[in-house]
Nucleic acid binder design. Structure first.
Lengths: 223, 223
DNA sequence: TGTGTTCGTTAGAAGTTGTAACTCATCGCG
DNA sequence: CGCGATGAGTTACAACTTCTAACGAACACA
């Protein structure tokens, strides 16, 4: 089991308490939202005194940062596993939706209203581009390989795709054609649009089925 | 000037102080976000003591509710004015974008991560459907009037539009055809998807121009 | 078995929301 | 004009939050 064998007892205990704290934090976030996360309440729930938690997290911000990191990791792993099992872009969409519905607060922690002073650490942006990479692979599988002549024609018809091609630093060195870059961005923004409005409860009251809206948007997206 | 003439001096003073409080609140939200809004800080900025503000707002929640109401009102008026001046759906999209970019925190107050215990009062949902009405009018102007034969054909091709037609309570009694209902929902979710990710800063680092992504999504949406 | 690291505790500072009670200015009415 | 009711602003306080400091006790390791 990798690290836990080589660790000293103290380190193992420390890691265990850290995860226990995070579990209580998730539970608290799920009921009251991230803004209501209270270190004192977690301590009380664990039966220890308030300042004890500061041995494990420098403060509320570091705890939240850790939760964000875990959430990104979970999403990247979930999408990555689905892709490894052969899911196409449509499959990834449904996996994403399931992941978001399983814990709306976790989704909002990643893609909701940004925390005022918070700045994402480097490794979360790394995980974020890992997600983007699996997305790009699925998108590239849907976009037909364009011969040169057709590519030139596309350049005049799809100005945004060529714009993305000129600023493709965010795609890393992923070998996705311009149309796939465009498809990935549309996928991201549209799925997020439907999901975030649904999770925020903006569709309650309207009586239609959010499932069908999601399916319709997905259908309109796929080439 | 309507009400302010008939009001007693006390009431006029009260209304003035209320708007002054709200102005400071907006200023504070713009710099630190809604979650960091502090009645004490507002009081200090206004040169009065903390509890003095409780004469004007029952608490933090009521102040935020009032700010949300004002934000909805502002958005509805802005879109309504644009529509009255002849803006089509594309024009409304750009007006919406301008409104959101002018004060991102205000946008997130309406469409961002929901506040845990908060439940929107009735009149905000009324304003919300006012917004939806101007949207539906603009959408209806874009979809062609369908003869009966064509409508029957559409019913099999556009299942979500017919689903919306069966659950069109949210559209009030607006006489928009099913295709317009569908277009309005797509408009809402897609524009929100691009805007909220942009405003949350998820595109910083990627070097492309958010303006062009917005334009591309809008272009893909219009029939 | 000692020794030093680390954990958890209590005490306290500085901040927040919100309530209670009191003073005092002001508004309206006789 | 004067007097009484209304309401604004004050201080004091309770209960909460994050977070620091100092102390005792438990534990791992040599």
């Amino acid at each position: 089991m990798g690290k836990s064998d080589t660790a000293t007892p103290r380190e193992r205990y420390r890691a265990q308490v850290r995860t226990e704290i995070k579990e209580h934090a998730w539970q608290q976030i799920a009921t009251a939202g991230a803004s209501a996360l209270s270190l004192n309440a977690i301590a009380k729930q664990m039966g220890v005194s308030g300042p004890a938690l500061y041995r494990y997290f420098a403060g509320r911000d570091e705890l939240i940062t850790e939760l964000i990191r875990d959430a990104y990791r979970s999403l990247a792993d979930t999408l990555g596993a689905a892709a490894a099992e052969g899911a196409d872009l449509s499959g990834l969409a449904h996996v994403l939706r399931g992941w978001a519905l399983a814990d709306p607060h976790r989704y909002f922690l990643l893609y909701g209203t940004p925390v005022p002073g918070y700045h994402a650490p480097d490794d979360t942006t790394a995980i974020s581009s890992e997600i983007m990479a699996t997305l790009l692979t699925a998108c590239a599988a849907l976009v037909p390989e364009a011969p040169e002549a057709q590519a030139a024609q596309e350049a005049t018809e799809a100005p945004f795709a060529t714009h993305l091609e000129k600023h493709r630093a965010w795609a890393g060195d992923h070998p996705a054609p311009p149309a796939a870059l465009h498809l990935a961005m549309s996928f991201w923004t549209r799925m997020h649009g439907v999901l975030s409005l649904e999770l925020a409860g903006h569709f309650t009251g309207m009586r239609f089925d959010p499932d069908r809206l999601f399916a319709a948007e997905l259908d309109a997206l796929l080439p």
